[in-house]
């Protein structure tokens, strides 16, 4: 069971093909698989469909794949931080499917759990519900949403052991666990690979059964909105 690879390019070898569907973890620029995204850019794979809550910023995250015109379609809940995205979308170069954030997360979770569809109240009576099956339960109306099944999952975790058990850190967990589960193959980038047995089994956030390939690397971890308070104001 060899899961550890030497680089992002090696870890993606044989997995990429034009027109594929990739589920990516991260929220904004927090907890995004930045090394794997760069490697996909370098590989030049085209016509990609990405399920990712956001689309990065112009020069970081999925934004770098938008710049190189490798993305055909985005499935996201919020894309407000990316000007190039807006330009490509308004000019018709890029397809966009908005999913409510919780629906997107649940679609990934459901796909990973072998659930092809589920009913939710979210979006009833809005554009999101158009064309979807409606059904009443206990006197309330719900719409049918589908589980997501991706060709590849790319996620970022804090630590992995050699068998792929993962631990995330603070709010960088976000979409990473559900995204990890819904792909046929899951490639993970971490800040540190630790010896098997050194993580507390009770503190594993995502068990290694979901994880196929792991790389360790240096992360920029860019901050999107640096907000602070002054020490004086707190006194």
């Amino acid at each position: 069971m060899k899961k550890i690879y030497g680089s992002a390019a090696e870890a993606l070898d044989g997995l990429l093909f034009d027109g594929m569907f990739i589920a990516a973890g991260g929220f904004g620029l927090c907890g995004i698989p930045e090394l794997l995204l760069q490697a996909i850019k370098d590989a030049g794979t085209k016509d990609l469909t990405f399920a990712s809550n956001n689309a990065g910023v112009d020069d970081f995250g999925i934004g770098i794949l938008l710049q190189s015109k490798q993305v055909k379609k985005m499935i996201s809940s919020y894309v407000g931080e990316n000007k190039e995205f807006m330009r490509q979308y308004l000019s018709g170069e890029l397809e966009l499917e908005f999913n409510p954030q919780g629906t997107l997360a649940e679609r990934m979770r459901a796909g990973g759990a072998g659930i092809p569809g589920f009913y939710t109240k979210t979006g009833v009576g809005t554009q999101i519900a158009e064309g979807k099956e409606h059904k009443d339960f206990h006197g309330e109306t719900y719409i049918l949403e589908t589980g997501m099944f991706a060709d590849l999952s790319i996620v970022k975790a804090w630590k992995a052991d050699e068998t792929g058990n993962l631990v995330f850190r603070k709010a960088a967990r976000n979409f990473n666990p559900p995204a990890a589960t819904c792909g046929k193959v899951c490639v993970v980038e971490v800040e540190e690979i630790v010896p098997t047995g050194s993580l507390d089994p009770d503190h594993i956030h995502l068990p290694g059964v979901y994880v196929h390939r792991i790389i360790q690397g240096e992360h920029e971890k860019r901050i999107e909105q640096r907000t602070v308070r002054t020490r004086e104001a707190a006194q």
Partner: peptide
């Protein structure tokens, strides 16, 4: 500031003694 600790507006924030983290689903 910690890049792993942001709110839904993508602003850097802090945790409290009661804080719990979990995934988006």
């Amino acid at each position: 500031e910690d890049p792993d600790l942001i709110n839904a507006g993508k602003q850097t924030i802090t945790e409290l003694p009661r804080t719990a983290y979990f995934d988006s689903a």
